[in-house]
Each structure stands twice: as C-alpha cells, then as structure tokens.
Design a protein around this nucleic acid. Structure first.
Lengths: 110, 110
DNA sequence: TGAAAGGTTCGAAATAATTCGAACAATGGA
DNA sequence: TCCATTGTTCGAATTATTTCGAACCTTTCA
C-alpha cells in the first residue's frame, strides 16, 4: 500500500519570524491562512482569488506556507488536509497570528 | 536655501498589511525597526549587521521601510531622522508591531 | 565660497521568487 | 484492474528584489 508522501515541516523551535512574515506577506498566501482559521480544509476547498491558477502554482503557494511553518499539510486520502499551525505560532510568536489575521487589509500589496 | 527633499510617505489609511509584513520580513530591515523602538535615530546611528554595506544599499533598505509605512524619514539638518510609525501602525494593525518587535528570532530567514 | 558630511537617486548586474506545463505518484471507485 | 482524482515535483522562463557604484543634492563649517 504505502501512502502519500509525508512532506517536511519545520519544528516549532525552528520557526523563523522573518520567514513567517515573508510567507504571510503575499496577499494570496495570507488569504489562504485566513481560510484556515476556522479549522482544517482540504486543498480543493482552499480558494484563490483567481480560480484559474494552475495547480502547480497553488501547490507552490502552499509549500511556502508549509516550509515557513504557517500551515501543516497532511495526506488525507487522495486529498491533502491543510491546517493552521496556530499553537506552534502562538507559542513561538505570541500575538502575531491574531494580529495578522484580525487586521483588515483593503489595499493589498500586489 | 530650499531644503532637503521631503520623501513621500503613505498615509495611515493607505497602509497595506502585506506590504508591512514584507518590509519586516527581511532580517536587516527588522533589525532597523527594532533599533527605533526607543525613539528616533539619525540614519548614521542605525546600524546594519554588516558595517561595510554601501550607503546606497542602506538607503534602499530604508526606502522599503518608508514606502511600507513602517518608518518615517525626515530631514534633520544634513542628516535624516528615522522614527517608527508606531501610532499609525498600532491604529491600523493593532497588536502587530508589538508582536513582531517582542518576538525573538534566533533563526533568521537568510 | 569651497569642500566635507550625510543621504538620495539612477541604472545595470546579480539574485531570488514566482509561474506554469509536463511528468510523476498515491488513492479510491467502477 | 483501470483510470479519474488530487495533488507534488522538476525545469525553464518570467518577473521582482537586492546590491552597489556613480552622480547628484543639501547642509554645515572653516
């Protein structure tokens, strides 16, 4: 049987502030993080502002979030379950996630 | 006479979350912001981790912080006075600056 | 006035990040 | 078993960011 590949995730102690800030500094990635505040979603349920973006691009956005430690990406059948690493982020950078997620951003970067 | 150029600064209402996050996502720029928490400094008093970086590079780092609205850059004699735009940032993105500045970051991005 | 101090801007080169098609892999059903 | 679903990864092209020297601008002070 074997199973879907386990992707690498940084440990809590390895999280880097600047790397997390960078991951969240893209409007599309920030929007993804926001979609996960109410609980995990399968990748297909996470929407981008442009629905026509190829899956490889979407996968790359997820990778930036995952390697920064913002999001966890686990196999879930043939899908992928995305979840916010809220506990790790709160422990490592208290108040940061709340501030970022609760901020309103009428004029995004790009 | 005339006077030193007044550089453009975004208004409070124009501040963009992702742009601010991007500005702070670089270790050198984050370090500069941290040097300003206790009050304004002249540019020459803001130190980079590498003291040999050319002034044009340093000026560019400041520009990214300024155009993001993180820092104010005003003429001060022949020098430039840098200050954190704490009030604007706090008003626009409550808790964000505190979270970023108080976080410890043992493993910087680059 | 002349020149040094302290910075900004411009342009070009080097680096880094993003985008996306194609190839590949595992899962779940028919 | 076969094949559609749901992704990841690789490589190449595009685009964005960074770096830095050179030119330039004010201010200060001798």
């Amino acid at each position: 049987m074997s199973s879907s590949p386990d992707l690498p995730h940084p440990e809590r102690s390895e999280l880097s502030l600047t790397t997390v800030l960078f991951a969240l500094s893209d409007p599309e990635r920030l929007a993804i993080a926001r979609q996960l505040v109410d609980g995990p979603l399968d990748m297909a349920e996470c929407h981008l502002s442009n629905p026509d973006v190829p899956k490889s691009t979407k996968s790359h956005l997820m990778k930036v979030l995952r390697t920064a430690g913002v999001v966890r990406n686990e196999a879930n059948g043939r899908a992928r379950r995305l979840s916010l690493r809220r506990e790790d982020l709160d422990a490592r950078f208290p108040g940061l996630l709340d501030a970022v997620l609760s901020a309103d951003d009428p004029k995004p970067k790009a």
